[in-house]
């Protein structure tokens, strides 16, 4: 379970998909980094990720970590967004047996986990099949 402080720090990424684009080489980092992994540049401009993409690969979780047991079986995948950035997230609202590489998906705001019945609820993004 993630605590209040860490959850709060990640709000710009988890709620608004805010990434950082290197001013020198244009590489996009999500989540943002202090130093560019491509050119070691230290100047970034904030960019918002595309909210639709294609499933590049995925796996189906049958034995889940603590807090996710009720959700099995569920899919976790790597999605290549339409702006080229790859994001790892749960893929939900789909039958895991019918999910396929190449499927069009979009980001949706969902509950990610909660700290028991009395703790904070953590929100963020998951992928769902794109409409129609």
């Amino acid at each position: 379970m993630i605590g209040s402080a860490r959850y709060w720090r990640e709000i710009p990424q988890r709620y608004r998909y805010e990434a950082a684009k290197c001013a020198k080489c244009g590489r996009v980092a999500f989540p943002p980094r202090l130093v560019c992994a491509g050119c070691r540049g230290r100047e970034f401009t904030p960019v918002k990720l595309a909210q639709t993409g294609v499933v590049e690969t995925f796996t189906v979780i049958h034995v889940a970590p603590t807090g996710f047991g009720d959700e099995t079986p569920y899919a976790v995948g790597i999605v290549k967004l339409d702006d080229g950035v790859r994001v790892t997230a749960q893929i939900t609202d789909c039958e895991t047996g019918k999910l396929a590489i190449g499927d069009r998906v979009k980001l949706e705001f969902r509950r990610l986990q909660q700290d028991g019945e009395s703790g904070i609820i953590c929100y963020g993004y998951k992928f769902v099949p794109a409409i129609g």
Binding site: E71, E108, F109, L112, I121, Y123
Partner: peptide, 16 residues
């Protein structure tokens, strides 16, 4: 609603 949906998640999507 699925367990990962609630008033807040649906409000965000409708508001977007």
């Amino acid at each position: 609603p699925t367990p990962d949906q609630d008033t807040i998640t649906m409000s965000v999507e409708a508001a977007r």
